[in-house]
Design a protein around this nucleic acid. Sequence first.
DNA 1: GATGAATGAGTGTTCATTCAT
DNA 2: CATGAATGAACACTCATTCAT
Lengths: 220, 220, 220, 220
Amino acid sequence: MPVERGERATPAQVQGHDRAVSAAGEGKAPRTERGRRTMRAILDAAALEFGERGFHEASISGITRRAGVALGSFYTYFDSKDAVFRALVRDMSDQVRDHVAPLIRAAPDQLAAERAGLLHFIEFVRGHKELYRIIDEAEFVDPESFRLHYATTAERIAKRLQAAATRGEVRGDVSEVHAWAIMGMNVFLGLRYGVWSEDVSPEAVAETIGDMLATGIAPR
Amino acid sequence: MPVERGERATPAQVQGHDRAVSAAGEGKAPRTERGRRTMRAILDAAALEFGERGFHEASISGITRRAGVALGSFYTYFDSKDAVFRALVRDMSDQVRDHVAPLIRAAPDQLAAERAGLLHFIEFVRGHKELYRIIDEAEFVDPESFRLHYATTAERIAKRLQAAATRGEVRGDVSEVHAWAIMGMNVFLGLRYGVWSEDVSPEAVAETIGDMLATGIAPR
Amino acid sequence: MPVERGERATPAQVQGHDRAVSAAGEGKAPRTERGRRTMRAILDAAALEFGERGFHEASISGITRRAGVALGSFYTYFDSKDAVFRALVRDMSDQVRDHVAPLIRAAPDQLAAERAGLLHFIEFVRGHKELYRIIDEAEFVDPESFRLHYATTAERIAKRLQAAATRGEVRGDVSEVHAWAIMGMNVFLGLRYGVWSEDVSPEAVAETIGDMLATGIAPR
Amino acid sequence: MPVERGERATPAQVQGHDRAVSAAGEGKAPRTERGRRTMRAILDAAALEFGERGFHEASISGITRRAGVALGSFYTYFDSKDAVFRALVRDMSDQVRDHVAPLIRAAPDQLAAERAGLLHFIEFVRGHKELYRIIDEAEFVDPESFRLHYATTAERIAKRLQAAATRGEVRGDVSEVHAWAIMGMNVFLGLRYGVWSEDVSPEAVAETIGDMLATGIAPR
DNA sequence: GATGAATGAGTGTTCATTCAT
DNA sequence: CATGAATGAACACTCATTCAT
């Protein structure tokens, strides 16, 4: 889920409310201001509902109840339960990236960038514990977006690693395999130290893993 | 999911058919040989059904149809859909461990062991693609077993790393954090190169990650 | 089941259709007129279905088929099979009381009132043979309403008897025991001469029992 | 449920264990002593199971579990769930009659007999609270035996009343209507003061009702 | 006779989606 | 746009009954 150095934020990504609505590519574009507010309310309610109850336990009526709108209004903005879910996955996916990307870009070199990526990812997760419940459940609800999310993320990591390699910041043979390994580490560390328990600080985790990534665990 | 060096197989783990049945702690113990066979058939059918359709799409009648038994027979051995699922997660969890453990133990040192663990894990996954669909879906269906599975696995990795540290085979400061990172890498690499695509050989992946784990990715 | 003299009808009790719907305290209040009609149709259909087949043989689909609505509509108005049943018991209980109460109040004295109560109760039962099947089955389906129904009825009879005693219309020592005895007589006579067979006229039964109640069966 | 003066006990009715088995006309006669014991165990267990859970909640497996025999053994002795239930209704019906009949016959006259009948009926009920749960549920499970039970009981009461009338112990015009009234009173008083609560002694109830039956409730 | 595994018909309940108002 | 009543497909689970051992 973390993003990486060099990424550019599109204008839409840095704004507040409108972003999520636009990110909801799955939804039907509202024409009035009133409609925009209703759609936003539904999307926020859906994050709560899916986050608390999971996709299958969640219900459309639960979403509209939380949003304070009538059941039927849901279908004014989304075609189906799957559609909101997809919109939400994309929304959350963008949120992580938008949060972590600038902090990665600010790092002096790629190893520091990876350390920062993990650090801020864990921090973000602590404040958004519904993240895993939503993104990971996509594996079963909408494999397409799940696959897309991780494939895209891994690809970006790989590109940055290779760019860093040409700059001499990392070994020359870094590949997609390394990217997947790094992504896997981060996801599991976020789950363990972000969601499950906060018994180790994000800084400590990032420090430890930064070291391991840089020089390995072979005895010196 | 991979296991690690030094682990001892209990007698039950190395047997074939009876093991899975005994692992099905959730089920109701059959009292006759015929019952034992029926239960095994149901458990195998459940692996297929859940693997192909996922927990929510799967149906009890689908399971019994595959198993070639009557619908009602399901309830002779399991209390509910959740109960078979739990039994299955434990069953599969044990299967991975039983497959990989001896190969890890055969490694000359801990770094080689980690390499072997990843190698054989990916190989195992290629032959059991339903693994992820089942174990990962537990996060949503039965968080308890999901948590237990990964917590237990991480703890074992951590113990082996620390034992290896005292033997001087890895750095002295290896910790739980390293264990989670290694587990995360393996799980994602298994997903990418075991389930999604076989475009890179398990040997190549294991070799690459073995190197990274040993000496890191900092430029030499 | 019969009611007694002196009772005041509340406005809700004397109206026709709305009453039963409001009596259905178990149901979910409809918000539109269309909803009100659907709920009433379901309640009426339930009386038929439960009356003809009994609680356990009755099916929700049988109820909705009779009501001419979709299966799912049932759950728009009632939470469960038990819930309609409870609503129905209350509905029927109120119907008897509303029918008999004014006729009891019109009697010149308490002995005449008891006679009238029995008379009109038997008559009512003849036109509503599903009454017993529904109210008495509550003993097994929903003991709470069964108990409430009879406890309340007995208590009212007792109160009227005591009020009559102070007016000198009956013996001074009438008690709860007499009330239960009278209620028991009425219920069984209603069953025998209202539901099972109409071989004796309600008038004759009421006359006979009126006499017995007044002066007993000891030889003069 | 109470019986009345002058009734003759058949030999089978006064024996202990064998009686119930023979009363189980619905069952299949066991040929061996072992079989006789098994059948008795099943019948006793059925009384418990039906008494505690009611007909529909009761299960054959619940009965055999209580009886300590295998599920299949049930069908060695009874054809169906309905069949045990019928056997049980008859069994209990006979038990009440056997208990109350001799005490009724011992009374000096018919009014005293009715008083005694009610008294001992309530006492019996207090020791056999499953009575109502079983006999009354027959109205819905097996209307035939329900009807038979009450029709027979009422008829006997009527006959005794008429015999007493010829002896001058009660009014000359006693009829079936009186019999049903008396039976109804007794059943409801048994329910109220035998099963629901024991707040009034059976003696007091019988005394009160004996008086009412003899001289009515009109002011003197 | 006793055992308990196997059978499968039957039904209450949920909820995404549609549509008349 | 908003509303909420109406729809009906889909499924887990129960349990009386049968029968091979």
